[in-house]
Structures are given as structure tokens and as C-alpha cells.
């Protein structure tokens, strides 16, 4: 599979001097994949996200999205159409006081004719399940719904990939579930590449690949099962692992022969019951 985002030896520091926030990142993201970037505050994960659609430009190194160099000003709008971005605070990214008009905002900016715009807006609203709310005011919506509207605004642009910068950090558990379901749906149904910046372990565990950042570097980059089995490394950089993974880890440390690649409660329950069944025999 070809990569849609490729980051080559990316260094960045604010103003081009002082301490580097990103200290040499190399990363290839495959088309149609769903990748989580995990890290605690100040690890540089949001800074990395902002490089992908040229909000920030590298101090040194290169970032390419679908072959477009992010430093190429001539192709800036083409780039931003290919790589949409969803931010943390849903209130501060909704421009219009009517839901459907906000979804249309990007299309209006790129001069899409009315008939096509109408169709793409309706399609995007249906895709995130907000079509019934199309004439509402964003202030009448819940946080999760607002974030889905923001996603619809990006989907309407028909992007190749979506970068979500902690989209669930300000939401309640219900809203988080809604947004995660929408994100995964966009990936599986439309094949849109997803780059999810998060500090929630359980969200990262739902992705196909997890890159862990610490101090401006990528320290782990693998499938979630492998990443979360590195309990020691994760703890050292101040990250937790999903509770069930930690349970398995503690059990192994205590000498119980349980699998280490457990991520969900179902897997854990299964492994434990297998263990108990074999113990009886």
C-alpha cells in the first residue's frame, strides 16, 4: 500500500530557535489506515498534527501529503482540501449559526457551485447522522453532536485524510463514544485515512496502529497489541495502559500465564475463563 502522509526527519521549534518541540520525526501513514498518536501534554503530538496541513511549517525536514509538499504555498488550498482538520473545542471551529451552513463553509470557500454543494452537504450530514439537525443552531447541540458537525464539514470537502486533534477531550463519555464511532465509520465506509491525536488509551486501542510520542520523538510505533504490551516503557513516560492490559501485566508479573496482547474487556474475560478452565483440569 502506498503512503498518503510521509514525514521525513521533521524538526520544529517555535520561531526557529530555542528548544526543539519535534526532534526528528520519521513516519509513513498508509492510505486508508487509522492511526493514533498517543502522548501526554507537551509531548509534541499536537504540534505534529499542525504540520500535516501546513498550520505550522517544519524548521527542517519535509512533510508530504499525497505528494504535496506542505511548504508549497501555491498548493496550500489543494493540501487543506486533502487533509482536513478537526480541533479539540467544538465551539471554536463552528463558523455559522446554522448547522448545514457550517458544513457548507469549506465548500463555499472553494467556490463549489450551488447544486453540487447542496448535494455534498446533505451527504456529509447523513454520513455523520446529523441530517435531522441540519437547520438547528449549533448552540442547541451537545458537544458530541457539534463535533460530528465539524467532522461533516470536513467530509463534505471529500478529503483523503482527516487529522483529529484530541476531538474528544472536551466531551462527556456519551459524546466520546459518538465521535469515536463516527471516526471509525468514516474510515471503514469511505476509506478516509484517519490520524487521531489523543491521550485516551482506550481510543488509541481501537485504531489499527499506535504511535507513542514523548519529548518530541516517536518512541513506540506498532499495532496496539504490541504497543500496549510494553507496559514498562509506557509507564516510564507517564502513560497508562488500558485497565485490562494492566491487569494482564500484573497477573503475568505474579506468575500467571496470561496473554499479554489483551486490549478489550471481552478479550480479557475470554483469556481469564480459558485460564480458569485449564486450571481446573
Amino acid at each position: 500500500m502506498s503512503s498518503i502522509i510521509s514525514i521525513k526527519d521533521l524538526h520544529f521549534s517555535y520561531g526557529g530557535e530555542g528548544e526543539e518541540v519535534l526532534k526528528g520525526i520519521d513516519m509513513e501513514i498508509e492510505k486508508g489506515s487509522i492511526v493514533a498518536v498517543l502522548g501526554h501534554n507537551g509531548s509534541g503530538k499536537s504540534t505534529l498534527a499542525k504540520h500535516i496541513n501546513a498550520i505550522l511549517l517544519p524548521t527542517s525536514g519535509k512533510v508530504f501529503v499525497d505528494g504535496i509538499d506542505t511548504c508549497d504555498e501555491e498548493r496550500l488550498f489543494e493540501l487543506r482540501q486533502k487533509a482536513g482538520m478537526v480541533f479539540q473545542n467544538p465551539d471554536n471551529q463552528i463558523v455559522s449559526s446554522i448547522v448545514e451552513e457550517d458544513v457548507a463553509f469549506g465548500l463555499e470557500n472553494t467556490g463549489v457551485p450551488y447544486e453540487e454543494m447542496r448535494q455534498r452537504v446533505d451527504e456529509a450530514l447523513r454520513a455523520v447522522g446529523m441530517y435531522d439537525h441540519r437547520l438547528h443552531s449549533p448552540s442547541q447541540l451537545s458537544g458530541g453532536q457539534k463535533q460530528r458537525v465539524a467532522i461533516a464539514g470536513i467530509i463534505a470537502m471529500r478529503p483523503e485524510c482527516i487529522i483529529l486533534d484530541e476531538p474528544t477531550a472536551m466531551l462527556d463519555p456519551q459524546g466520546r463514544r459518538e465521535v469515536m464511532a463516527t471516526i471509525k465509520d468514516m474510515n471503514s465506509r469511505y476509506g478516509i485515512t484517519i490520524l487521531l491525536i489523543t491521550h485516551y488509551m482506550d481510543e488509541a486501542a481501537q485504531c489499527g496502529r499506535v504511535a507513542v510520542m514523548d519529548g518530541g520523538r516517536i518512541v513506540l510505533d506498532d499495532v496496539p497489541e504490541k504497543v500496549f504490551s510494553q507496559v514498562e516503557t509506557l509507564k516510564k513516560i507517564g502513560l497508562d495502559v488500558p485497565q485490562v492490559t494492566e491487569l494482564a501485566y500484573e497477573l503475568r508479573k505474579a506468575g500467571v500465564g496470561i496473554r499479554q496482547d489483551i486490549l478489550t474487556e471481552e478479550q480479557c474475560a475470554e483469556a481469564l475463563s480459558e485460564l480458569l478452565a485449564s486450571g481446573k483440569r
Binding site: F87, V95, F105, E108, V112, P113, Y114, M117, M157
Partner: peptide, 26 residues
Amino acid sequence: RRADELATAMECRCYNGGEGRTRLRQ
């Protein structure tokens, strides 16, 4: 702070002033 974030979000959605814009609400 909101103004700053909104401006970034608008730029990310290709906002480039009134030139060549079309409108959903006719």
C-alpha cells in the same frame, strides 16, 4: 483565545476572503 482558534479553523477550511466564494443560502 476563541478568536485565535476560530481563525485557525477557518484557514484550515480554505477560507480566503470573499473572492470566488459561493453560497449555500441563496
